[in-house]
Each structure stands twice: as C-alpha cells, then as structure tokens.
Amino acid sequence: MKIVEKSSKKQDMEFKPNIVCFCCNWCSYAGADLAGVSRFQYPASIRIIRVMCSGRVEPAFILKSFKDNIDGVLVTGCHIGDCHYISGNEFTKDRFERLTIILKFLGLEDRFRLEWISASEGKKFAELITTFTNQIKKLGPLNNI
C-alpha cells in the first residue's frame, strides 16, 4: 500500500504536513463531502482514503503510514450507535485504544487521532482538519524530529 508520495520541498519553505485521513463511507466521507459542498475552508494537507467502515482500518495501516514518513494519521467513523454495520465503530474504538499504548511507547501518540463525525457535521470535519494540521505543524515533520 503506497499511500502518498511526498513532494520534495526545499528546507526554507514552510512545512506542509502530509496527513492521511481514513473516512468511513456512510458518515465521515459524507461529512467531508458536506464540508466541501458548504465551502468550509480547511488546509489542503489531508489525503482522504475511503473505507466502508472504520472497522476496516487495520492498526497496521497506521504503522505503515508512519513507516512511510506520513506526519499524521486521522481515523474517522460514525458516532457510537450510528454504525451502518451495527458495531463496527465499537470494534474500532477498542482496537485503537490498544494501539495508543504502542504509539505512546514509540512517541507518536500525538500524531494519531480517532474521531467520530456524522454525515451532517461538515463544519466539525473542517475544524478537525484545521486543528489537527496545526497540531502536526507544531510537532514538525516526522522524518527529522
């Protein structure tokens, strides 16, 4: 899985983080769509990967992104109770709680976030991307901390 190729930048240019965002098909992707349709402004730092459910996102995907020098990873899904597949997001929650322990050990826990976004929350999606991008900007690029 080759996610995003990092464009070569000169050092004096401002740091533009590369963020991978996993969106579930039923809520978050529609939410991201709504953010676009309603013309909310948010940084162009994310690459959205659509998955059918947040439960599809393997912890290995997150690690693979970090291995390929992606600066931050977002996983978004439906709110608890709203999952199209009944309990997919509960599974996700449990899974990523375990992963956070490992990310803490590697010192990467600030670069990863799990959020719930419903189809009507376009505004929230835009805000999330803005705050998360700023957070990553503060942390700096992953490959030369």
């Binding site: 690690l63 693979k64 291995k67 490992i102 590697l106 010192g107 990467l108 490959n143 901390i145």
Partner: peptide, 11 residues
C-alpha cells in the same frame, strides 16, 4: 512494521 518504525534513527 513496529520494528521497522523503531529502526528509524529519530524515533
């Protein structure tokens, strides 16, 4: 993957 991330010098 964990081992490979760990092998990075900056981590």
């Amino acid at each position: 993957l964990l081992s490979e991330i760990m092998s990075k010098e900056n981590i």
